[in-house]
Design a protein around this nucleic acid. Sequence first.
DNA 1: ACGTGGAAGGTTTTT
DNA 2: CCTTCCACGT
Length: 760
Amino acid sequence: MTEKQQEGTIFEGLNAPQAEAVKCLGGPMLIVAGAGSGKTRVITMRIANLIANGVSPYGILALTFTNKAAREMKTRIGSIVGSKVASHLWMGTFHSMFARLLRIEAENIGMPVTFTIYDTQDSQTLIKSIIKGLGLDDKIYKPKTVHGMISSAKNDLLFPADYARDPDIAKRDRDQMRPRMAEIYQMYVNECRKAGAMDFDDLLIHTYTLFRNNPECLERYQKRFAHILVDEYQDTNRVQYAIVNMLAKANRNICVVGDDSQSIYSFRGARIENILNFKKDYPDCQVFKLEQNYRSTQTIVSAANSLIAKNINRIPKNVFSEGEVGEKIKIRQTNSDIEEAKTVVGEISYRVRSGENPEDIAILYRANFQSRVLEEALRHEGIPYKVYGGVTFYQRKEIKDVLAYLRLTVNHSDNESFKRVINYPKRAIGETSVSKLEGYANAHGMTLWEAASNPLVLETAGLKGATAQRILDFTAMVTEFSMQAEKVDAATLLKGVLDRTKIIEDLKTDKDSAEGEDRIKNVEELRNAFVTFVDEKVEEGGETSLSAYLTDIALMTDADTGNDENCVRLMTVHASKGLEFSRVFIVGLEDGLFPGSMSILDPVSLEEERRLMYVALTRAKKSLTLTYAKERFRNGETTMSICSRFLKELPEEMCDRQGEGRTVSISSFGPTTRRVINTPKPRFVPVSSQKVAPSAGEGTASSTPDGEFSVGDVVAHERFGDGVIESIIVDTPQDVKLKINFNNFGVKLLLLRFARIRKK
DNA sequence: ACGTGGAAGGTTTTT
DNA sequence: CCTTCCACGT
């Protein structure tokens, strides 16, 4: 392709602000990209343009939100500049790009090149054993909570020493009855290092410390990455921010792209401030605003706009669509989650039968557990579907077991993998033996492997005779795997491991159950994946080492696996970020679910929920259907709920509301129609007066309408402990808030109908 | 050492 | 509802 032709391809069909952004070859840039504004196109074309202007692809670091997005963009860039050239780009998620970098620089951070990546489950098991080792109660030090706290500390660049030193944190931990958090954090970090392992957060933390402690190394990468692009900048956290800005410091060719209205990851440390303050960080930056939405109908865009307008903290922008007005947004009430599923699937079935592609349809929900009823309904109707998220393929027990062998093969220090497979399949090395081994190893600063592979150590640890021999046989076997790994490719090695360990045979013992059958199939599928991996890598000359593949696997999400098949897509709203579908169904729009009950209390997280809703709405190109159920089955019990406050924030004239509390058919599609019998009053008032002021009509009272609680009462809350009711605020009789001053948690505003409190 | 059954406990969102 | 934990029997 000649340069002229390239130019033509690159700028063809771009609107003015898009073209401006693509044309810009350097300096700090902020691209504020509204939903559906062709952001991906701008990024890909800008990179193509940089290359066309002589920038080496080696010198471009592009950080995206998913690996799949990166792969697609790379392909598109490749089609312009040539796939060989594009293959040299460093383009992928923060986690995978820095995992790659850390493998190269492993020596400089004192980690083995074959370091293991611990997933959430590995981290939590490790934390659990630390807690047990300290003799602490894991009901108070819940591994999940502790891990969450460590993770947020890391994302906030709080190292164990900082953590231990911080008086506010110490106070918080003491108040939460967890005074030894700092100690656990430190031990966890030590254990990971000893095991040659990194958790997800460490991939960022170690990159940060590498650059901070090693100016020579930082300088090398500053020189190398002449251009840095960060997509979804609104969802970067402190470490990511720090790394990007360190790298960009020398050249200042930093281009960040994002939309503050779509910041939805604060629970994992994302700071919307990063994008809001970019102009302060780089006062000379150029700002590009992409405001024309090419994805959705005018109705969808304006409905989403009026929803997000309820948020206060925003970069002002005017997203608009010049597409057709389109159909109204359908809002449907159903009696139960099952009926909701039938309604949605009924319409999908109708659409598919009239020739629409299942893959153009998505069902979005707030939480993964909601997929079950939908799956059942879809299966019942015989509609092909694919669920994204939840337990992914690589998290399945049987897969993790097999992978643990491989992880241990490349990294003998990986204690979590060691414990996972030392007695799997059963080889008569029981719990007592393992804890003897572990006790000895911990006391002497050894890894489990070091202890297990040395006959003398086994003897001193009190492991003798047949048991000791079985342990030695195990380490000898894995050592053989390691030697094989030097000679053969990953797929062949895997086959050897499966044969030798007899894992498949073991799985066959409970083949009778459908589940057992699935497990065997999954392992077979894993083998296929390895074969494909080897073929692909050999073809494109990529990194074929087993540890590189294990890294890929560890950082793989569901979105990255199989984009194939013509299926209806089911996923959480979080997982839908960056995607688009002709028809979108959003289910479970109930207060307490979406927005979630955790967020209702607090205005800041409520704004994030609203952004999440905004993301959900703006996934749709042509049609949107929003549903809620009056009762829902959850954790073995049925709960009643009212419709989401977000539904009230959508402009009346853009909505088609049927069956909301009236005696009409709920669904206009298919045979699933049922009747609402005698529903008492609409819980939800579909009038335009709803548009504003959620707090209209607010008043205080001395006691709750039902008379159960009064101001001054001492109450006990499940989570917050004891407190005193300071005031009672009555919006409507269904909407009563209690202002409670808790002894240990301060003043909280709780909704009466959700608050789990009792009088003392 | 290991399988079993019953009880208890847990629920957002993800790299 | 589903997973995990513990006590008990073999």
